[in-house]
Every structure is written in C-alpha cells, then in structure tokens.
Amino acid sequence: MLIPVRDIRRIAVVDDNLAVRDSLQLLLGVHGYEVEAFAGSVGLLASTRLAVYDCFVIDLKLGGPDGPHLLSSVRARGFQQPAILISGWEVESLERLAADAGFASHVRKPMMITSIVDEIRRVLRPRESRPPD
C-alpha cells in the first residue's frame, strides 16, 4: 500500500549499480520516501541539498572513495543525519566497519534477509512519534 504523503522523508541513495539505484528508488518511493539516487561520491558531495535528506543509504564499494570515506566527508561538512551502509561484498566484519565509520546500521545485499525499508524506519524512528513495537 502506498503511504499517504504527509511529512515526506528524503533519502539519498549512493550506489554505483544502476539496477540497484532504480529498484531502491521505486521501493522507497512506494513506501512514501522521496529518493534521490547518486552513482558515486562526487554526485552526492556536489549536491547543495545535503541538509534536506533525512537519511543516507550508501554502498560500501563505490567507484572512487568508498562508502565510509563518503560518510566522513558528509560528516566533515557538518551533516549528522543517520546513514545505512549497504554491501554486496562479503566482508566478515561489516558490522564493525559500519559502526566504526559512523553508520547507524548496515544491510547486506541482496537485501533478502534484512529489509532496507525496515532499517530506514528503524534509524529514523527517534524522530517519528510512533509507539514502540
């Protein structure tokens, strides 16, 4: 079901794979989020709208600087919104890597076990006045 668009949450997705970007854009759009997708670090950092996003979804390996680097550049500019690290590489310590780099959460591709939508809800929850599950 589509969620009525009231208080729109904006998500920036950074992934170098076109199909992943497209599918996330649709999925998150269906769930009422406004999504902007970027193919790499440069695109996101060139955006003058970093402040408008409620959450960043960032792929681990990007062409150029990787996801943790990108997040630290974002943080260095003073933006503190929660971020989720996604990865299709089998990194044994993805949990630690994500936590060390300041990500609020991580999701392993192909996103079949953990739903990215659930994770976004979870990291945005403190701002939502919803009863605890």
């Binding site: 794979n17 992943v20 497209d22 999925l27 299709g88 590489w89 591709k109 192909p110």
Partner: peptide, 22 residues
C-alpha cells in the same frame, strides 16, 4: 562473482518487495 550476482539479486528483491506493496 558473489558481488556481481548480488547486484541484480538486490534489484530483484527490491522490485518484488515494491510490487507486493503495490
């Protein structure tokens, strides 16, 4: 190869999840 495969599979998972919701 796992990484290569994960990309289209991620897209499949997302498209199907969106489809279920639509």
């Amino acid at each position: 190869l796992a990484h290569e495969l994960n990309q289209p599979l991620t897209a499949v998972a997302n498209y199907l999840e969106a489809s279920r919701d639509l």
